[in-house]
Design a protein around this nucleic acid. Sequence first.
DNA 1: TTTAAAACAGACCGGTTGTCCTGTTTTGTC
DNA 2: GACAAAACAGGACAACCGGTCTGTTTTAAA
Lengths: 232, 232
Amino acid sequence: MSAEITARPKARPGKRTNDPDGLRKRVLDVAEASFQARGYHASSLGDLMAAAGVTGGALHHHFPTKKALALAVIEERVAAAVEATWIAPVQAAGSAREGVRSVFEAVAAELEQQGFVRGCPLNNLAHELSLADADFRAALAGIFSAWREAIADRIRADQQAGREQGTDPQRFAALAVATYSGAMSMAKTAQDSAVLRDCLNALEQGASSDSSNKGGAVAKRRRRVLRQHRAF
Amino acid sequence: MSAEITARPKARPGKRTNDPDGLRKRVLDVAEASFQARGYHASSLGDLMAAAGVTGGALHHHFPTKKALALAVIEERVAAAVEATWIAPVQAAGSAREGVRSVFEAVAAELEQQGFVRGCPLNNLAHELSLADADFRAALAGIFSAWREAIADRIRADQQAGREQGTDPQRFAALAVATYSGAMSMAKTAQDSAVLRDCLNALEQGASSDSSNKGGAVAKRRRRVLRQHRAF
DNA sequence: TTTAAAACAGACCGGTTGTCCTGTTTTGTC
DNA sequence: GACAAAACAGGACAACCGGTCTGTTTTAAA
């Protein structure tokens, strides 16, 4: 047995390649997943270190505290998730309503496919952390705000194109985000994505739905107008 | 200094009065408050014991584990809160829509008065615990289900009275609960209850108001929101 | 090559956590 | 009053957590 090949760490220190960006990314990946699956307080740095294959020194070098790590997850990962699954699709859609509908359906389809509901990344952390720390709350509130603003902006763009004249952008955005958040909350708790489609259908039919006649865009639109003068 | 008056616990053992129900209630009170304010994992049994003035032995006697305590909070307190603030008012209201509206407004008024948003008790715990433990999830899902079912039942009652013929009970209930849950989530994160009224207004005016005809009531309501609009 | 800073390794520590355990006191029943 | 069970007291403990610390290696600039 050669002493050089099977050398101990001291005899042959081994080759280490510094990769700060890659290591940071790995830690964020693991932290994001664990925070979503188990929550912030239930995720220990020891578990994260083991899962990411990172030592305590390296972790501390990139993220001095657990809070700093969570803040990075919120600002870099959660915000990006909202941007990717909501903001960009809504901006790219033909209209605000169509954008909202497509996101609902895309998420519902994805959940049905993978058979497991992890919940909304933003809401998951918001519930646990927004009352615990002011910095957490500010970061999370900013993402919520940007989310709603993007939808409201899309409504305004529709309005400049002559559509959605009777729609209040802010209210519409609040309702869309609230409905999605709440539906995901229920879907996560029940581990059943069906409620997402229920909410989408109810939303599209203006809080009312006709169980006896679901088809026909013309009929739907006529009924929608008829319901205009009815409160709620 | 008299030895009898300032006697130590050993010298004069003191009179202890067993009050199992009262002690249990005190523990539940403290646990409910702490779980809502700080979350389950961030609440230590030591803190709860100190706040409730209860020893470890007594706590363990009534609740063998922390999980058992949380389960009791969910089944006895969270369920009761949903019953009191949602189910009973909706059943007592003149109609399902009116019930939903009155609850939204009552909660919004309460939040504005106390100037602090604690969030929805059910959603707060659901997000943190529904993925952590199967028993937690089942208990929380049951409350969500009862909540929606009560609203759906109220719609059905309206329908038997000749109203709401075009409304799907299940969908309507899902939308109401989801909107409320999501709105409370945003209100908690932003510490601003204004979004609750935004959502209620959007709900009442119908999420799909694409035409330009507007009743006086709707226009009035919109103006009110503009007046009370606050920076986010 | 020299050198200083960045990147990483890994042990260490004080404090906390949830639970268990052994006693003691109270309570209801006969 | 006897007595068993319930109710409560309080210490002990092992595991764990997050953060710190010292030391080593890599990297890049000079």
